Computed example of a mutant assay.
Amino acid sequence: MPITKIFKNGNSQAVRIPADLAFDRNDMEVEIERVGDELRIRPVSRKLDRVLEKFGAFSDDFMADGRDDNQQAERDGL
């Protein structure tokens, strides 16, 4: 398990994340939570504010033939 140090950045504490544990991007927000003696850092969940824009990018014939794999399998009775 990598070891790092806490340091002061203005009025806040900061921690340097080692390269092998770093997130892929630097332009993301993270949330931090204290659980006992642990601090958990994770990316903020994506918002749905652009979901309609993304759906609008599908072609007009997207799934025109439906979903063939949506058939229910026969099941034994209880």
Rank of each mutant, 00 (worst) to 15 (best):
L78V: 02
L21E: 11
D20Q: 09
R42G: 02
A14R: 10
Q13H: 08
P18H: 05
M1S: 12
E38L: 15
E38K: 14
T4F: 05
D24Y: 11
V35I: 11
R42A: 12
G10T: 02
R25V: 02
D69W: 05
T4W: 03
P2N: 08
R50A: 14
E33F: 09
Q13F: 15
R46E: 05
L48Y: 09
D68W: 10
I17R: 07
F23Y: 11
E33D: 08
L39G: 08
D65H: 11
T4G: 01
P2G: 03
L39A: 10
V44G: 05
A22T: 01
R34Y: 06
A19H: 02
T4A: 01
R40V: 15
I3W: 04
F55T: 12
L39C: 07
L39H: 04
P43F: 04
E53W: 01
F58G: 02
I32K: 13
G66I: 01
D69E: 14
V35Y: 10
K54Y: 02
M63L: 13
D37G: 00
E33P: 03
E31G: 03
R50P: 00
D49A: 11
P2T: 06
E53T: 15
M1P: 04
N70H: 05
A22Q: 11
N11K: 15
E74S: 10
S59A: 12
M63N: 09
L21P: 00
E74K: 09
I17D: 05
D24T: 03
E31F: 10
L39S: 02
R40M: 11
D60H: 00
Q71S: 08
L39V: 14
L39T: 13
D61S: 07
R50Q: 08
E31A: 11
